[in-house]
Simulated assay, not measured.
Amino acid sequence: MAISVVIADDQEMVRIGFRMILESRPGIDVLADVVDGEAALEAVARLRPDVLLLDIRMPGLDGLEVTRRLCGPDAASGPGSTADEPYRPRIVIVTTFDHDAYVHTALHHGASGFLLKDASPELLVEAVQAAAAGDSLISPAITVRLLRDMAAGAGDPSGSRAPDKPLTEREQEIVRLVARGRTNAEIAAELFLALSTVKAHLANVQGKLEARNRVEIAAWAWETGLVRA
């Protein structure tokens, strides 16, 4: 089944470019492109896309507020939800601005990825595919810097949440690589594991940490000192 996408950006050329890139790839279907946050919420409620590509700076509601409404604590009763079926699209922020505050806020609200608009077409496609699969992708230029700085400002590492069930040595090894920005395929190659094995370990880690995505897993690793600069 094709990955369904909605694009929200106030710049027409950006929307056209993203649509051309994504529609040129098999398995991706762009349902709509819209110009602001309110239109993004309406399109998500009406079309229920798998992935929302979202700019930060838009007229009216900005991308951070849209992310909060769709993926934050109250999202289960938000646009597109039903009483029996809470709905949360995967959100990939694509912006010109890589300010750490923007990145941190977007991820805290539940975004599944953060890309700069000068990212390659391949990286855009990978981010959409990763988000649809429940994974996360952040521009490599900011990944390690962001997580390292988040850890530096976190204070005493002992204050970070500890899993109820400790991570195994293998799980810790994989988490360290996740925190360094490695993809699942790169982790599998580096540790001589099957890709399915890496995914299974990460699923276990995600459950132990009660993390929503691999970004939160990586942040935990930096905050607790499991991985260091």
Rank of each mutant, 00 (worst) to 15 (best):
V44A: 03
L70I: 10
G153D: 10
A162T: 07
D50Q: 06
V30Q: 10
P26W: 03
A200Q: 12
A130Q: 00
D100H: 13
G80N: 00
R88H: 14
S139C: 09
G155Y: 10
A45R: 11
L22T: 08
E190L: 15
A43P: 06
A76R: 13
A219E: 15
D36S: 09
T82S: 15
A131Y: 02
A151I: 05
F18E: 13
L53D: 03
G225Y: 09
G72L: 11
L123V: 12
A76W: 08
G110Q: 10
T168K: 05
L52K: 13
V198G: 01
R88A: 12
P163D: 02
T67R: 12
A200W: 09
V128Y: 09
V175I: 04
E23Y: 04
R182L: 13
S77D: 14
G159S: 11
L115R: 03
V198E: 02
P86T: 08
E223H: 11
I7K: 08
L64Y: 12
G37H: 00
R212D: 12
A32T: 03
R180S: 06
A203P: 00
E42N: 08
I21K: 02
T96I: 15
V34A: 01
D74N: 11
M13T: 14
T168M: 07
M58H: 10
V30A: 09
V44E: 03
D84V: 07
D156E: 06
A221Y: 06
A2C: 08
R48I: 03
V198N: 01
V51D: 06
L147T: 05
L209R: 05
A194N: 10
L53I: 15
A130W: 01
S160D: 12
P140R: 05
K199V: 07
R176A: 04
G225W: 06
L22M: 12
L226N: 02
M150S: 09
Q206E: 13
K208P: 01
L226I: 00
